[in-house]
Design a protein around this nucleic acid. Structure first.
Lengths: 217, 217
DNA sequence: TTGCTGTAGTTAGAAGCTATAACCAATCAG
DNA sequence: CTGATTGGTTATAGCTTCTAACTACAGCAA
């Protein structure tokens, strides 16, 4: 037996789960998470309502799976860009492209939180993974003295960066990169720039450009 | 007849509408917009289900009313702070306090958009009202040459600022103020800083401090 | 005061949703 | 071949939004 691999049943199961998620993404892209209906998905798949519960225990569990996939996707995208030699500006463009390709997927991660809901632990792990890349791209290798009050504040509150030895000023840049990009991006995707005719991409570029390791923050 | 004013019926109607919205806000604060149930509100008010439709034609119309109130609230808050002499840093703190007081109200405006939904025109008017205050606070009175590519881009795309004669660099600052503050704030309120123990208020302060009319952007 | 009108409320019910229960058929393992 | 597991079914409870039809009351005019 040369490495049995997944059984036929398991492959089928994975396949159906994937199809369910596929249709779920389509529904979400069209009308948002609130409109996600297990019933409707089941019908489109040719099976009747409750059959779907063999694959996802509840609507929430399906959504959680989608959230996990979204995190995984953005993390892989960022990691790939970084490995490909992208600098901060490049990372910003890659992330923005990723978000614009499927805004509702972006909002599934960074949009309105559901008060009770707690994301599974592995998603926060993936978040840290992204942050690690950002810290690296923010010039983790240089030695830098803290320059602002928040820098010194970060010296004492850097556990979130794991064991990363980057100076606080670098952590600060990574955080600012994240928040600035998210600021432009989420307002853009939510349509708050509709009517104003400027190019949000240019704004995003400049918001992030001020953070380049060389230039002043 | 000394200015008849609203009739008894009209006052009652306004009162009930207000009570409905009050309970709606409570439900939203507790469990988010998806959990908002007209039925549940009606029962809490001691009346039975469909009676509520005398006051709001649909669930969406109720939510729209809440959105309108939220816009009005933030606009009044910003305007009052500006009239009270607050500078950019002060405005940022006031807005952040407003948002933290009721995160779901903030997200009702700035959170995940519903793909089909179009906000009523008057809310975008209120948005412009806020932007006008921000532009003013960003030093609309000074003459300034465009300093970045985005500044020059804005010279040709400034209709959104209405008739405001502020130089493009000022419009740029106002936009950056908005996006940077929203970036920190929405990630903070959505819980993405949970676990990282730094103070988001400090980060917000410094993100905005770089935009003060004197300092470099 | 009488009588009309419009409004606020009621119950009943359609259509949709999530989710559970109970059952049937096919498949895989021993 | 037998027996357990799995994927599917239908029925059903309980929730939702929202419409329809009806009742009762408040306010206004003659």
């Amino acid at each position: 037996m040369t490495d049995a691999g997944p059984s036929s049943r398991e492959r089928y199961r994975a396949q159906v789960r994937a199809e369910i998620k596929q249709h779920a993404w389509e529904q979400i892209a069209e009308a948002g998470v609130p409109a996600l209906s297990l019933n409707a998905i089941a019908k489109r798949l040719g099976m009747s309502g409750p059959a779907l519960y063999r694959y996802f225990a509840s609507r929430d569990e399906l959504i959680t799976a989608l959230i996990r996939d979204a995190y995984r996707s953005v993390a892989d995208t960022v990691r790939a860009a970084h490995d490909g030699g992208a600098d901060l500006a490049g990372l910003a463009r890659v992330i923005r492209d990723w978000a614009r390709k499927d805004p509702q997927r972006y909002f599934l991660i960074y949009g309105t939180p559901v008060p009770g809901y707690r994301a599974p632990d592995d998603t926060t792990a993936i978040s840290h993974e992204v942050m690690a890349v950002l810290i690296e791209a923010c010039g983790a290798r240089q030695a830098e003295a803290p320059a602002t009050p928040f820098d010194t504040h970060l010296e004492d509150h850097r556990e979130w960066a794991g064991d990363h030895p980057a100076p606080a000023a670098v952590l600060h840049r990574a955080l600012s990169f994240w928040t600035r990009l998210h600021g432009v991006l989420s307002l853009e995707l939510a349509g708050h720039f509709a009517g104003m005719r400027f190019d949000p991409g240019l704004l995003a570029d400049e918001e992030v450009a001020g953070l380049a390791p060389g230039s002043e923050g």
